[in-house]
Design a protein around this nucleic acid. Sequence first.
DNA 1: GACCCTGGTCGAAGCGATTCGACGGACCGT
DNA 2: ACGGTCCGTCGAATCGCTTCGACCAGGGTC
Lengths: 335, 335
Amino acid sequence: MVTIAEVAQHAGVAPSTVSYVLSGKRSISPKTRRRVEDSIRVLNYHPHAGARALASQRSNVIALVVPLRPGMHVPVLMQFAISVVTTARRFDQDVLLLTADEGPAGLRRVAASALVDALIVMDVELHDQRLPELRTLHQPSVLIGIPADTAGLTCIDLDFAAAGALCVDHLADLGHRSIGLIGPPTAVYERETGFATRTINGFEQAVARRGLAASTLPCEPTYEAVRRTLDDLFRAQPAPTGLVVHNEAVISPLLDSLHQLGRRVPEDVSIVAICPADVAERAVPPLSSVLIPAEDVGRLAVELLMDSLEGRQNRQTTLLAPRLTRRRSAATATG
Amino acid sequence: MVTIAEVAQHAGVAPSTVSYVLSGKRSISPKTRRRVEDSIRVLNYHPHAGARALASQRSNVIALVVPLRPGMHVPVLMQFAISVVTTARRFDQDVLLLTADEGPAGLRRVAASALVDALIVMDVELHDQRLPELRTLHQPSVLIGIPADTAGLTCIDLDFAAAGALCVDHLADLGHRSIGLIGPPTAVYERETGFATRTINGFEQAVARRGLAASTLPCEPTYEAVRRTLDDLFRAQPAPTGLVVHNEAVISPLLDSLHQLGRRVPEDVSIVAICPADVAERAVPPLSSVLIPAEDVGRLAVELLMDSLEGRQNRQTTLLAPRLTRRRSAATATG
DNA sequence: GACCCTGGTCGAAGCGATTCGACGGACCGT
DNA sequence: ACGGTCCGTCGAATCGCTTCGACCAGGGTC
């Protein structure tokens, strides 16, 4: 292994000078800088990460905690992870991959051992067990998802309330006067991830604002449950002509059932979904949808962390504005 | 931050003793061991990862290089990554997540800086650019996928030849005498990932061994391509009654097309797929399939690395035996 | 009783970087 | 010509841990 001392000797300078060339923390004359850089290249020098971490109190690694829970949409997870890694590399950081099953102890472990400088925690629940740990950590962290009490935490998430409202507005603009919301199964509400409730709130406020008739129903991702939900839904008066679906697992049984019931999409019933882009695209017909902006969230998370690490404090919650993509499943109301 | 010196003082021993308690590299009397462990717990001591890496020449981190190429089946990727992380933690290792877009330089970076002790590289191509780098690294590595020249490398993959043969045997056992293989588009063969070719070889050998009639065709994942491929296929004499599909993107258009052509699965044509389990399960009807054992591969990769790190050398290639899961798409030949 | 092990512990020397204070020379103003 | 800046560089201390050789006490051997 080639050390900074060897580089220094090769370039005819002191080790500290090499260090300053690398970090840019003191000015170096162009001449010596060039000599040092040449030596670095010739000797193929790479600073020892551990030594650097020890001396500088910075590991240049950030932790990414991914959930393991089945039912998560994996492509979105991966898209997010990739975005985090890519952005981190732009800041010369690496990413340590942790799974949620280590719980709070896992966070403590990597933080207390100074393995990482900062943490990104995905899939944070309303009353997440890890919150106390995160609050006491010396390292900054960014949470994906909004817990009940965000005091002292930095959180990011899609603005689900706005997303719910956006779907309502879209349908209302198309002339629909009675609409339904099909949400996640009740289990999700109970687990209290928060986003389900936020969507409903946004939905209902928008419904009130636009003076629409509406009903909201949770739904399990099975054919029977979907049929029952649809029965309930269409029993309402006036019969809904627009549907907001916030439950990706339900999409394909839903579309099948509507087909079997002889209800055409979008001629008889318009659909707007809140779901990953690939799900919306693959559906038949492709769904107009508000997508989960995984890539933006990942990038932003890293950027916020870097801000914190450089002293720009920002303990606050960021809600990303939803954007609706029109596809073929929502059209002007007939009648 | 609490250091080993403080723990030592608190327990009334030398720092080195604390270290030996932690590492178990020298015997310690039960009495002092208990004292030290108590102090560790009381002070909530976590060894500084950087200091440890510097002193011991071991970071206890392994790199995982994931591919970015679109078209990879993401759930399998994730399943694999999770399996690597989980297994690594069993060995007290952490996992650094790298993306393939850093190329060979990325490997050199993390290896030369001693950020990681070992590497796992996924999706290795026949003539992968990273091979020379991997050969010169001081750290052991495990490749997922089999390159053309495996000399000096440790590789793991599903035994695709055996998988191809297994599918043939299954169909032959069910009485099918003429079968077809639908493979990935020609682009995949050209990129030379190797597994496509290996499947064909295994398929053809088994076909010869069982004395069957057979044809093999690449296929793009579009409806038109599928229709053309099926036309070609069924023109053969005797008409095939069994299909092996090694191309997950083609599965759903294929099933649709067969339906439209009035060929029932499995009554008129039996299908065996080589694909991720979730794809096979979700198909209509669910496909008998040989799955990609992502979890086994991930676990094995880490275990091999740990062997290497502990001095048990094992430069060699491991092919995992395929296992066929019967579902509803393959049945006894009629006629 | 002298001897040698052996198991248990200590002390000190690294590991390879960063960083701070100091220092020497060039350049400025007076 | 002289003192004061400022720029560029150096040397040494430091970060927290591991590990090696040394040391000591106790017990077995002859």
